[in-house]
Design a protein around this nucleic acid. Structure first.
Length: 217
DNA sequence: TGGACGATCCCCT
DNA sequence: GGGGATCGTCCAT
């Protein structure tokens, strides 16, 4: 039996799909941090949890750089912020306000201490698991509205069950990774000062996708 | 060894 | 829009 060629349009779709589903390479993370923050918009972060895949489209991110007074790394390397100084492409998770975790993508080469805080994602897959993760503490939460699920850095971590145990994970591994996505056009990218930051308020290093319900505040 | 505070969230007014 | 929850981290004694 003769093997038939797939129509060009389908071949193109398959190619696009494979491109979308490709894990971001190390080189993506080694670039300047502000660029990485902007380019993370529209990418898909995947968390493998007990055989389930939780997927979110990144819609808000903030850059924290070397010499930046708002950054955890500003006062040098400590036990807490150690992962920030690892090579780009690792996950830096920190604990704050006595009850919340926040997740960052480490950038640049080892020793720099720069990272991008993931502030919000749009839930794409595994929403049922996210709902469970978010309503575990008797909270009404996301039942009110799905946008409450992941529209903040600590909410994202709770929904994706990211805690200190995930601190230092390599994003080129198979537990938590980030897939390529469609590039968000410049016209849809918003930019502002970072949230909750006083030192460094003049730096407009927060990037978000305009018009989505999952951007914080 | 103590104290101030934080890249937040939720509930109540 | 304001305050309380809640605890690890860091720096000053």
């Amino acid at each position: 039996m003769k093997r038939r060629e797939l129509p060009a349009s389908i071949q193109s779709s398959i190619y696009n799909f494979q491109f979308l589903m490709r894990t971001l390479p190390r080189s993506f993370y080694l670039r300047p941090t502000v660029r990485v923050a902007r380019d993370l918009l529209g990418k898909y972060i995947v968390r493998v949890l007990r055989g389930r895949k939780l997927t979110g489209k990144i819609v808000e991110a903030e850059a924290y750089c070397e010499g930046d007074r708002a950054s955890h790394s500003y006062r040098g390397r400590t036990k807490r912020n150690d992962v920030m100084f690892w090579e780009g492409g690792h996950l830096y998770v920190y604990f704050t306000y006595g009850m919340h975790f926040c997740a960052n993508v480490v950038t640049r080469k080892a020793g720099r201490g720069e990272a991008v805080l993931i502030r919000a994602v749009e839930p794409i897959g595994g929403v049922d698991v996210m709902l469970k993760n978010r309503s575990g503490r008797n909270r009404r939460i996301a039942r009110q509205s799905l946008s409450n699920l992941t529209n903040g850095p600590a909410k994202f971590c709770e929904a994706f069950r990211i805690t200190r145990e995930q601190n230092g994970i390599d994003l080129l591994g198979n537990q938590i990774y980030i897939l390529n996505g469609v590039r968000i056009p410049e016209s849809k990218v918003g930019r502002s000062a970072r949230i909750g930051v006083n030192n460094g308020r003049e730096r407009r290093w927060r990037f978000f996708v305009k018009g989505t319900a999952w951007v914080s505040r």
